[in-house]
Design a protein around this nucleic acid. Structure first.
Ligand SMILES: [Zn+2]
Ligand SMILES: [Zn+2]
Ligand SMILES: [Zn+2]
Ligand SMILES: [Zn+2]
Lengths: 149, 149
DNA sequence: TTTGCATTGATATTAATTGCCATTTGCGTT
DNA sequence: AACGCAAATGGCAATTAATATCAATGCAAA
């Protein structure tokens, strides 16, 4: 659970990576922005405001690197681009509600599935290490505007 | 639950669509091939063997059309392309195991989540209409070759 | 047969991501 | 402080899935 840049630095060092200024800048975006799901382009636009000389390729590389370190979590909500968020709670407890109307994504943490992995593992030959649960529906704003009930 | 071409024809007719030869050929791939998850390119390659004059665009269009009719189900397993499968059992009961080593995908049907939607809906402001559950791990073949236990 | 309209197939286009490579940077060693 | 070198960067080309475009085709009704 990396809460600070220093903890990220330790994780990088442990795998012989450096905490470059660019990596620090990109990491800071996620530490600042809170509970949001950003695409690579999102991050690029935010970062460019204060650091116009950063490259898009570096953003992609850094997001992948931080995902490998499990500092970030790479997700796909079906809109054709990957999205990234801070991996604070363990992956297992974090799930998503996705609005079919406007695409809004809301995260929530719950461990209701923890027992389920063993049940599934017993029925199959898989060694399960992770899971991902997404709910699709209509958010409150869209429910008010259209008749989705 | 469309088991036959005729049932698909009815569903198409109900929405003013025709069962063209191309659509029938593409649909037949899924009826023949059983429990697999095919990309548009996969379908295109299979279909081209006996019908070399079919176009890739038509494959894409037909897969989208059949997904709209809920004859097929469009899925994403994180390998950068959409995959399609017969939508026999309801979507709600169909889930997937994905091998992190070789990418193999295994489907299984289970209704263990049916009660969960209400629990989540109660905690959030979403009107939930669907969900998707994926498990990640290592398939039997990969477990034998590498030490993943 | 003629007209209208959905469908098709070839091709161009879009958009996210990755690959490539010359240049720069961080950092340990002199 | 200057050096050497691998790692990292930035700009841009290349790739790739998917979509858009559009002329040609085919079917169905009049
Ligand atoms: Zn919404
Ligand atoms: Zn989230
Ligand atoms: Zn495997
Ligand atoms: Zn399946």
């Amino acid at each position: 659970m990396p809460l600070s840049i220093n903890e990220v630095k330790k994780l990088l060092r442990a795998k012989e990576y450096k905490l470059t200024p660019q990596r620090q800048i990109i990491m800071q975006v996620f530490l600042d922005i809170g509970d949001q799901h950003l695409s690579a382009e999102d991050v690029y636009q935010i970062v460019k405001q204060k650091h116009p000389d950063i490259g898009l390729a570096t953003v992609y590389r850094t997001l992948d690197l931080l995902s490998d370190l499990e500092v970030l979590r790479k997700m796909d909500f079906g809109d054709g681009r990957s999205r990234f968020e801070l991996n604070t709670a363990g992956t297992h407890q974090h799930h998503h509600l996705i609005c079919l109307e406007c695409g809004a994504v809301e995260g929530f943490d719950d461990d209701l599935l923890d027992g389920l992995e063993q049940v599934i593992a017993a029925k199959s030959k898989f060694k399960i290490v992770d899971h991902q649960l997404k709910f699709y529906g209509y958010c409150q704003a869209c429910r008010k505007q259209e008749a989705h009930d």
